[in-house]
Design a protein around this nucleic acid. Structure first.
Length: 293
DNA sequence: GGTTCTCTCGGCACAGTGTC
DNA sequence: GACACTGTGCCGAGAGAACC
């Protein structure tokens, strides 16, 4: 565990003691922020849900929070909107471990419901919806809100190269800590603000985390499936980053749009040149509206 | 023909990291 | 604790070869 190379302003303690770091309590304020305040032409939205568990069939959302922000072409946040938070009665007791984790008790959610129309309108007003683990949040939101399908999603956990940027781990609280802040985690509103703060974070090259995220999210990509690949090339595929899909019984990987042609050549030379029963690769386009489903 | 060994072809278990 | 995903390494069923 190291905080030495995170490229952020974690303040040394008073007196210059380098063995001590000071963390600031996170307090994201509504209103214009930074250079070019308020002028960003794009609208992003950070969202987080708290649920009674992880089972999409049996469990339910108990809290949904979101906050919009404006950002400019450089990925700099220029204005932060007011927070939106709803709690919802799941119709059954909140499990003790979830109550301990989130601080939400049965009486906090009793008789309360998410305003479907307002929440859906809020989500649809954004160019991109961002969550810290969109594979989780997207499924819950699309299941709960009828009008929330087909939005462009990005993931602050998966689509920012935190390790490459000098951070350890990917958990929200730990990333925030390395950026010099702490918050009261595991409440939806607090986690939304934590993500916004991380997106504002400037790396050593001056780019923000949001800029990295938007660039990676906007890149079209392709799921390549080595359909019919012979077993003899499985280790070759694995070493190139392909993964086995048990359901479809194919090796697959995701490549950027500009890597597709190179991948086709590689497959032709290394996989399909030797495989008598090969059927040939398939390519499925992936975009922000189809990721994390 | 019966038994044992070896190889093939995935499949599975587990650890680590993330979410609630 | 439950679940998802990734990476790594080992396991197992079935087929064929080798041996008696």
């Amino acid at each position: 565990m190291s905080f030495s190379n995170v490229g952020c302003e974690v303040a040394p303690a008073e007196g210059g003691d380098s063995s001590v770091r000071i963390l600031h309590r996170l307090d994201v304020q509504e209103g214009p922020t930074g250079e070019g305040a308020g002028k960003g032409p794009h609208v992003g939205l950070v969202l987080d849900v708290e649920t009674t568990g992880l089972d999409f069939e049996r469990d339910a959302i108990i809290e949904l929070a979101a906050r919009r922000f404006r950002y400019d072409d450089e990925g700099v946040i220029t204005h932060i909107d007011r927070p939106y938070e709803w709690t919802e009665d799941p119709g059954k007791p909140i499990p003790p471990e979830i109550a301990a984790l989130t601080g939400l008790r049965d009486e906090d959610v009793a008789g309360r419901f998410i305003d479907d129309e307002a929440a859906t309108r809020l989500l649809r007003s954004a160019t991109v919806v961002i969550a810290h683990h969109s594979r989780f949040d997207r499924r819950w939101v699309e299941r709960r809100l009828d009008g929330a399908q087909g939005l462009a999603w990005a993931c602050s956990m998966e689509q920012i190269d935190w390790r490459g940027r000098g951070f350890d781990g990917r958990s929200l609280g730990f990333l925030l800590c390395q950026a010099g802040w702490f918050h009261d985690g595991h409440r939806a509103g607090a986690d939304v603000d934590a993500v916004i703060q991380l997106l504002r974070h400037p790396f050593e090259d001056g780019r923000t985390a949001l800029a990295d995220l938007l660039e990676r999210s906007a890149r079209p990509s392709w799921v390549v499936r080595a359909v019919g690949a012979d077993f003899s090339v499985k280790d070759l595929l694995r070493s190139r980053g392909y993964r086995w899909d048990p359901a479809r019984k194919t090796w697959w990987t995701e490549v950027r749009d500009d890597e597709r042609v190179r991948e086709e050549f590689w497959l032709a030379a290394n996989v399909y040149s030797t495989s008598a029963r090969a059927l040939g690769p398939t390519f499925e386009e992936i975009s922000p509206t189809t990721r994390f489903l």
